[in-house]
Design a binder for these strands. Sequence first.
RNA 1: GGCCCCUUCGUCUAGCGGCCUAGGAUGCCACCCUUUCAAGGUGGAGACACGGGUUCGAGUCCCGUAGGGGCUACCA
Length: 496
Amino acid sequence: MPSSGAIRTRYAPSPTGPQHIGGIRSALFAWLYARRHGGQFILRIEDTDRKRSVPGSVEMILAAFDWLGLDIDEGPHIGGPYAPYTQSERLELYRAAAERLVESGCAYKCFATAEELAEMRKAGGGYDRRYRDMPAAEAANLEARGQPYVIRFKMPLTGATVGEDMIRGEIRFENNKLQDAVLLKSDGYPTYHLAHIVDDHHMRISHITRAVEWLPSFPLHIQLWEALGWAKPQFAHLPVLLNPNGKGKLSKRKMKFADAAGQRVPVLVHEFSEAGYLPAAVINFLTNIGWNYGDNEEIFSVAQAIERFDLQAVNPANSAYPIAKLDWLNSQYIQRAPVAELCRLLRPILEASGYAVDAERLNRVAPLLQVRLKSLNDVVAMAGFFFADYESFQAPPADILIQRKMDGAGTAEVLRGAIPELERLDDFSHEAQHAAMLDYAKASGYRNGQVFGSLRAAVSGQKVSPPTFETMEILGKDESLRRIKLALASLADAGR
RNA sequence: GGCCCCUUCGUCUAGCGGCCUAGGAUGCCACCCUUUCAAGGUGGAGACACGGGUUCGAGUCCCGUAGGGGCUACCA
């Protein structure tokens, strides 16, 4: 059992499908705070809206945490001292709390029908509290007749509720602007408002972290904690991620395909792995939005973040989703990854594209790719040809072959002249090739870059490729020369 | 409409009254290096939303305006 002073944070998602990166960022902040203070991080499933529950969601949530390397101390999958961790299994607790509030006069049964509610809405304001002061006998009578009801909280009609937020400080709400919120629905399920308080209390949560959209109901929650007579935890309302253009909350629907440049932007956690991002890069990326490691250090590990993380230092402002920075960070992480690790990550991607991956070859190719990959997935386009059947190689079209400041005739001349020079080499190492091509370039009257660039395109078929001579070394002399000749043919076909 | 939150380069941010002629990163541009790509190096353009206060002094504190975001469900 944790001592009363233990730091305990939680992530409490609704099981409504794939995990959204915004939710995960909130979870990450809660997780970092718990780890920073040697506390516990709890996962709780808030499935009190039966209509919105999607089967398989819990597995997706767990997979997201697993991929990112965020460990969970207590949760529905592993249990814990305050189990169960799924709200639909804790209904009695909520019912008891609601009844206690009714008995103490802090809540009441409301028999308003859907039609009544609709009329009130049409009339302007919200619920007009028409059942708030109904005599107990009358209410008992309605109940006895089987009239369905909800339990509503009796919000104070006067005064103000002041909340303390770790990020923003004091926030003041006038009570007369607030409503009598539903605590227990007519199906016996609690609303979020009641359920999270009951659970956070029983689970000894010390810090409630949640997105800013919960700020408007903060006063309701404060009043509820007090009505229940429980000691309040600390609160931190986290800023949220906005769409890349800064307009509106980052949304699933809109973002799956859109950004300013019309490029696809990952929003769901599984899309990040699918897009070839490294989990460590994603964590670094997320941690740097709304919080920063400090002193101009952009790249840092989770362990480093844990050392310094503080909820009070979180920036209160929402942020546009700076997705371009993730590409840069990801390339940095790829550059720094050990070759063995990179191979391990690249292999399944190549295999998924249908390539048979030879371990030794991958080992030679991977280091050549490190400074060139933005995404792990780039390996397919950039280096797939190393693993393909050589027979299937297609000579690139002229526009790929002809480099900047070159024309078709010049390219053909350069390639044609290089053939005998390469053919002559007994040692086909990239060093030997380099030396030979340097001499050749000088003699040919073309610049090094013009010669090397033409060769790059000829043997790789690409404008961006691994280093040319290493590529040729791996392909071997015969295959390299074959490709140069194919390139010449391609140029001839194009009439250059 | 009402209520709440927010506001520094395009974007992510540093700044918690003098250290700011506002720093870093990304993106963009230029140059250098180079196996004309990529990476790397150097440099450049680029911001305190506006208006009032408070103060010897405000990006930093207060008020207002504007803009942005959110809530306003028997959803969370």
